[in-house]
Simulated assay, not measured.
Amino acid sequence: MKDKTIDYILRATWQAVSRMYNEEASKYGATMSTGFALLSIDKDKGTPSTSLGPKMGMEATSLTRTLKSMEEKGLIIRKKNPEDGRGVLIYLTEFGKEKRELSKNTVLKFNESVKQTISEEKLQHFIEVAETINELIQDKNIFNHANVIDMTELSEHTEKE
């Protein structure tokens, strides 16, 4: 992957992972989003619908479609939050709990395959790099004014070479 930007590598890798999960999920009439939602909902206490989107990194409209589909398939039920009458808790049905186990096993199988192929040291470096990239983004340290100036100087320096 020489000469490819970091964001390209991340995007291409995530698209491949997403495609792989969607292909596997389609065997069971599901999607990767459904599997991820199943894993994100607390199987015993339920999960407030308002916290599910941020937990999954999904926009509200996409989450609404996913939850509607899951409800139609009998994977989840919605109940009023007894502590906050305005809120809704999402609970897994027994069928949803079965499918959650399937999703969990799929994720664990992927993780195990990666761990068998990549050394522990390389995997640890990958995790550290990913965490650092996330921190840079969360702390808004990518496009702040000082870094923009540095990038301009770097670009000018590169052009001179």
Rank of each mutant, 00 (worst) to 15 (best):
N144F: 13
L108S: 09
L92E: 15
F95G: 10
E128D: 11
L108C: 14
K140R: 14
V107L: 15
E128P: 08
R86V: 08
L136I: 02
E94T: 13
G85Y: 11
E83D: 08
D150E: 03
S119W: 04
L89G: 00
T106N: 03
N147D: 09
G96A: 06
N147R: 13
F126H: 05
I142V: 15
N141L: 13
Q116R: 14
V107S: 07
S103I: 08
Q116S: 08
T106D: 12
F95H: 10
R86L: 08
V129I: 11
K97V: 09
D84M: 11
S119K: 00
H125P: 00
E112K: 12
A146R: 14
D150M: 07
I137N: 00
D84I: 10
S119P: 00
E121I: 09
V88F: 01
K104C: 02
G87F: 03
L108M: 14
K99G: 02
R100P: 07
K104H: 06
G87T: 11
R100I: 03
E131N: 08
V148Y: 12
G87Q: 10
F95T: 12
N147T: 13
K122F: 07
V148P: 02
R86K: 02
L136Q: 05
K115A: 13
H145W: 02
L92C: 05
N105G: 09
L136G: 08
T106L: 13
I149S: 10
V129N: 10
K99W: 14
K104M: 06
G96S: 06
T93P: 01
H145M: 08
I149T: 12
K115P: 07
I137R: 00
N134C: 01
A146H: 13
D84F: 15
T117E: 12
G96Y: 04
T117F: 09
S113F: 08
E98Y: 05
I90Q: 00
I127C: 11
T132Y: 14
G85I: 10
E94W: 10
D150C: 04
E98I: 09
L92T: 09
E83I: 09
E83R: 04
E112C: 01
N111Q: 04
I133D: 01
F143A: 14
D84K: 14
F126D: 02
N134H: 01
N105V: 06
I90R: 00
L136K: 02
F95S: 09
L123D: 05
K109F: 09
E131Y: 01
F126M: 13
E135D: 14
E112L: 07
K99A: 02
K99F: 13
H125M: 12
N141F: 05
N105S: 10
L108Q: 15
Q124A: 15
A146F: 11
E131L: 04
V107W: 03
T117H: 05
L136V: 08
K122H: 03
T93G: 03
K109Y: 07
T93C: 00
E101F: 07
Q138F: 00
R86D: 11
T132K: 13
T93H: 06
F95M: 05
V107Y: 09
V129D: 02
E135P: 01
K104P: 03
E121F: 03
S103W: 09
I133F: 01
I133C: 02
E94K: 10
I127F: 14
R100C: 10
D84G: 08
G85Q: 15
V129T: 15
T117K: 06
V114N: 02
T132C: 02
F143H: 10
S103V: 06
D150G: 06
